[in-house]
Amino acid sequence: MLDMLKSVFSNLSRKPVTRMYPYEERKPFDINRGHLENNIDECIFCGMCQRVCPSNCIKVDRKTSVWEYNPFECVLCGVCVEKCPKKCLKLDVHYRSCTDKKYNIHLEKHDDSEKAGA
């Protein structure tokens, strides 16, 4: 009957196991797959990420130098990062913050290399 008593008493004297989340955040692990980022200045628009992506969330247009990415279809497997020949794709450890609207990440490379979010 009293098997649980040991853990009950040890839990009484212990600190809480949970965190007060919004005020106290856990540090992400070094290899955490948070979100995908592209350093568009180095991108050569080879289209490798588009070919290997299992969820077809990346669209690359070589002619107009556009790299488009749908973060809501992405499954964060990280294959594109491994296959990227220029290593300009990278997985950041922090998660993308939540939103009430879906959006695409639209990156273009011009001579002056500007960045446009949509």
């Binding site: 692990f29 290899i31 955490n32 797959r33 499954v75 964060l76 497997c77 990280g78 491994e82 997985l91």
Partner: peptide
């Protein structure tokens, strides 16, 4: 999470080994 990068769907296996 610390060894693979994800908590549940850890996506470590590929054809030919692990990632």
């Amino acid at each position: 999470e610390a060894t693979s990068g994800n908590r549940v769907i850890i996506s470590v296996n590929i054809v030919g080994g692990v990632r």
